[in-house]
Simulated scan of single mutants.
Amino acid sequence: MSRALLFAATVLAAFPAFAQQDTTLVQDLEKIAAAHHGKVALYAENLRTHQTASISPDLPVQTASTIKLAILLDAAEQVRSHTASFDEKLVLTHENQVPGSGIIGQLDTPLPLTLRDVLHLMVTLSDNTATNMAIDRLGLDHIDKTIQQAGLHQTWLYKKVYKPASGPMPADQPKFGLGKTTPREMAEIMTRLATCNLDLPVTEETFRVGIDGSICGTILKMLRVQQDRDGLPRYIEALDTSELGSAIGNKTGALDRVRADVAIIASKSGPIVIAAYTFDNENQRWTGDNEGQITLAKIGEAIIKAWSPAGLDPTVINWNNPLAPASR
Rank of each mutant, 00 (worst) to 15 (best):
S101W: 10
L152C: 07
L232I: 15
T129Q: 09
V40C: 02
Q149G: 06
P309W: 08
A171N: 11
S101I: 09
F7N: 14
W307D: 07
Y43S: 13
L125Y: 13
K298F: 09
H36G: 11
L69E: 06
M122R: 06
S54W: 01
D28T: 15
E30L: 10
A35V: 02
K298G: 02
K89V: 13
L69G: 03
L312H: 06
H94G: 04
N318K: 05
L200S: 04
V202L: 10
L223G: 11
I189W: 00
L121C: 00
Q97Y: 08
L29I: 08
R184V: 12
D228A: 06
E282N: 14
S166K: 15
T218G: 02
I294Y: 08
W319E: 08
P110R: 01
P233F: 04
L113I: 11
T241Q: 09
E185H: 05
R3H: 13
I143M: 01
D87L: 01
S101Y: 08
F207N: 06
I303S: 13
K298I: 02
W286D: 12
A17H: 10
Q78P: 04
L138D: 05
I274T: 13
S54G: 01
T131M: 02
R259L: 08
S81C: 03
M122P: 06
L200Q: 10
Q154A: 14
L198H: 09
V225R: 11
Q284M: 12
A8E: 15
R48E: 11
E291W: 05
E88R: 02
L220C: 04
T24N: 14
I265L: 06
G102H: 02
V273S: 00
L59M: 15
N96S: 13
A247T: 07
P168R: 15
H37T: 11
K145V: 07
T114G: 01
C216L: 15
G179R: 08
N283P: 02
W319G: 05
N96M: 15
D172C: 10
A187P: 11
S242H: 12
T146G: 01
L111Q: 12
I299P: 10
E77P: 00
A4T: 13
T24W: 01
L115F: 15
G231W: 05
T241N: 06
T241H: 05
L72G: 09
R192C: 00
A44F: 13
I274F: 06
G270A: 07
T203E: 04
D228V: 09
G270H: 08
P16Q: 07
Y158A: 11
H94I: 06
E291A: 11
L232W: 12
E45C: 12
K251Y: 05
P322W: 11
D256K: 10
L140C: 02
F18A: 14
L69H: 00
A247Y: 04
V26C: 08
D212Q: 14
M1G: 15
G249K: 04
A247D: 05
A165Y: 00
T93R: 01
N197V: 03
T49I: 14
C216H: 12
I189Q: 00
D289W: 10
A275R: 07
P309D: 07
K159C: 02
A276W: 13
K39F: 07
S56Y: 08
V40R: 03
N281P: 08
D127V: 03
E77Y: 04
P322G: 09
I317R: 01
D28G: 07
G249V: 05
R137Q: 12
